[in-house]
Amino acid sequence: MRQIVKDYELIDPIINSTLQPGGESASPKELIFHIMKDNAAPIEVLDIGFGKGHLGEMIKGSPQTAHWSVDGVDGFEGSCNHPALFQRKVYRHIWHGLAQSVPSDRFAKYDIICLLDVIEHMTAETAKWLLRTLLSSMGENSLLFVSTPLWFYPQHSQQSGDLEEHLIGVPASSMMALLPLMYAMNHPLIGGFVLGKRSLDFIEFFHPTTDKTFSYEKGMYVANAINFQCVPGKFFKLS
């Protein structure tokens, strides 16, 4: 792990890189404002796979959450070579490295860990390992905000080493089996889920697929079969 930004200051710039910031996310990011019981509290957020920094910008741009501290981790060099983002002092600390290389004890300090449109870029086994690690390592009262396409959304790399290729699809049934506390959806069937520590007891039911024929239509069949609420723009709180 290489730290790029520390206390909002650039400390180790990436030099002579032609790679551009990447990582557009179609996830229902607005769910971030509904996760905590008290947004006025001093909240610490870790944004894994921050890409172009849109989640951080959203958090710091809202009067109700502008005081939150947001740290970022991204494995793509281009995302960590973004001087304009750093100058706006959106992210307190930024590290260049894969989520798998973050020391597990670091997760315990955060109130919210965000993994938005990240797991579909991993192998099935790595995605399972990462979810288990995050749920195991985060604090007792911490929350994990995960988003992913609920089908095998076809996507390939656009820049060298950009980690953009999709390797798995995640059925809605697999995410709902983790007993999320709340969820939301954006088109085209991109689900966002807030998980607490109780989800660790159900982690064995998380089963992504490598089957590229798991289409949007099939994803919708599964979502409808389990009464997953496919209503873009709304969030649903579960008991």
Rank of each mutant, 00 (worst) to 15 (best):
I14N: 08
I14L: 11
I14F: 02
I14W: 03
I15A: 10
N16C: 08
S17F: 11
Q20R: 13
Q20D: 05
K29R: 14
H34Y: 12
K37R: 15
D38L: 13
L46D: 07
G56H: 06
E57F: 12
M58N: 05
I59P: 02
K60F: 12
G61V: 11
Q64Y: 14
G75C: 07
S79L: 10
H82V: 07
P83N: 08
P83R: 11
P83Q: 10
A84K: 11
K89T: 03
W95S: 05
W95Y: 09
G97S: 09
Q100V: 07
Q100C: 08
S104Q: 13
D117E: 14
V118T: 11
V118S: 01
H121R: 05
E125V: 12
T126Y: 00
R132T: 11
L134T: 03
M138S: 07
G139E: 00
S142M: 02
S147R: 06
W151E: 08
G161W: 15
S173R: 12
M176L: 11
A177E: 10
L179P: 00
P180Q: 11
P188H: 09
V194H: 00
L195W: 06
F202R: 04
I203V: 12
F206I: 05
T209W: 09
F214I: 10
E217I: 10
K218W: 01
N224D: 11
N224Y: 12
Q229G: 02
K234T: 15
F236C: 07
S239N: 15
